[in-house]
Simulated assay, not measured.
Amino acid sequence: MLLILKPLLVYFLAGLCEIGGGYLMWQWLKADRPSWMGAAGAILLLLYGWVATWQLTSFGKTYAVYGGIFIVMSIAWAWYFDGFRPDRFDIIGGIVCFVGIGIILFWPRS
Rank of each mutant, 00 (worst) to 15 (best):
F81E: 03
G38F: 07
V65F: 14
A52V: 12
P34S: 06
W36Q: 01
D32G: 12
A78M: 11
T62M: 07
G41K: 05
D32S: 10
F81P: 01
L44N: 02
P34R: 06
G22T: 10
W36Y: 13
L45K: 02
W79P: 04
W54N: 11
P34F: 09
Q27L: 15
Y80D: 05
S58D: 15
M73K: 04
S74Y: 04
W79C: 06
M25S: 01
Y48G: 03
Q27N: 05
M73I: 01
W79S: 12
T62R: 08
S74N: 07
S35Q: 08
A31S: 08
W54M: 14
A78P: 04
A42N: 06
S35T: 08
G68H: 10
L24E: 07
W36T: 01
Y63I: 04
W28K: 01
Y48N: 07
W54R: 14
W26S: 00
L47M: 10
T53V: 03
A42Y: 02
F81A: 06
W26T: 03
W26Q: 00
W54F: 12
A52Q: 09
G83I: 06
I43W: 06
S58I: 07
D82L: 13
A31Y: 05
A39I: 02
T57E: 14
I69R: 12
Y48I: 02
G41P: 02
F59I: 04
F70L: 01
T53G: 08
Q55N: 13
L47F: 12
L46P: 00
F70T: 01
A42D: 01
W26D: 00
L29I: 09
G41Y: 06
V72M: 13
T57I: 10
F70P: 00
L44F: 11
F81V: 11
K61G: 09
I71N: 13
A42S: 08
L56E: 15
K61T: 15
L46H: 02
G49N: 09
Q27A: 11
V65C: 15
Y80L: 15
M37N: 06
S74F: 04
I43F: 14
G38S: 03
G22W: 08
L45G: 03
G60C: 06
M37I: 01
S58R: 09
Y80A: 13
F70N: 00
V72L: 14
L56Q: 15
G49L: 09
F59Y: 14
T57S: 15
Y23M: 04
L45S: 09
A64L: 05
Y23L: 03
L45C: 12
K30Q: 12
L29E: 03
L29W: 10
W28T: 04
D32W: 09
T62D: 07
I69T: 15
V72D: 11
A31L: 13
I69E: 11
L56R: 15
S35D: 03
T57P: 09
M25L: 15
K30L: 11
Y80H: 08
P34H: 08
W28G: 02
A78S: 12
K61F: 06
I71C: 14
L46Y: 04
L46T: 07
L46I: 05
M25W: 10
G22S: 07
L46A: 14
A39W: 10
A52E: 05
R33V: 02
G60L: 10
V51T: 08
D82G: 02
W28Q: 05
D32H: 11
R33E: 10
W26G: 00
Q55I: 02
D32I: 03
Y23C: 00
A76D: 07
W50T: 05
L24V: 03
Q55P: 13
G83A: 06
